[in-house]
Amino acid sequence: MARSLAKIYRMGEVEVHALRGVDVDLYRGELAVLLGPSGSGKSTLLNILGGLDVPTTGSVTYQGRELSACDQDELTLYRRAHVGFVFQFYNLIPSLTALENTALVTEIADNPLAPEEALELVGLSERRDHFPSQMSGGEQQRVAIARAVAKRPDVLLCDEPTGALDITTGIRVLEVLERINRELGTTTAVITHNATIASMADRVIHLHDGRIARVDVNTAKRPARELEW
């Protein structure tokens, strides 16, 4: 739950208002899409929700806990225990195999899936011993998802997860996200500038120029497999 979030960056002499008072809630088990053009503040919002960044003003509460008052170490523990991240450029550790990239997270989690199980979930069991350099972009992104969900996070935050992928692989990745959200009930937030993706969401939050333009509740969710762009 975020209230009156504002984030101001200083870029040299210039102040950039990335967020100008945003109120947003994520509901348990939902799949929300944050939609907006580049520069609309959606990444900033995701970073703050994920405990990577703190707002200049305003508050973020997670299960009654005030995140905006946390220091770096507390934020680390928050990320470690509750948040799963999926990035546009996968960010796998190149020196670790698919299985080991997953294990990197399960080793420090309280009640994780087995790394093999997580890879099974994204359909990559047969690629478990491959290094990132031996996998395609889509496979790498699915490993990244496996790594993110293996710890059974409360929230899965995805920053342009298909941004670097072609449509076919992008759809596969979205199917995986859909399946995770459905089968594990993980609250999932996907940010994208691709409006098509919004139709698979429970809720679509439109961001524009650092403000929430409108929130649509999607009554007719479409399966990821039917998406096209």
Binding site: T76, R79, I93, V105
Partner: peptide, 16 residues
Amino acid sequence: KRELATMRVLGLTRAE
């Protein structure tokens, strides 16, 4: 840098 930052984001502590 990138790997180390990724690890930090994934919730590994500074010591780890």
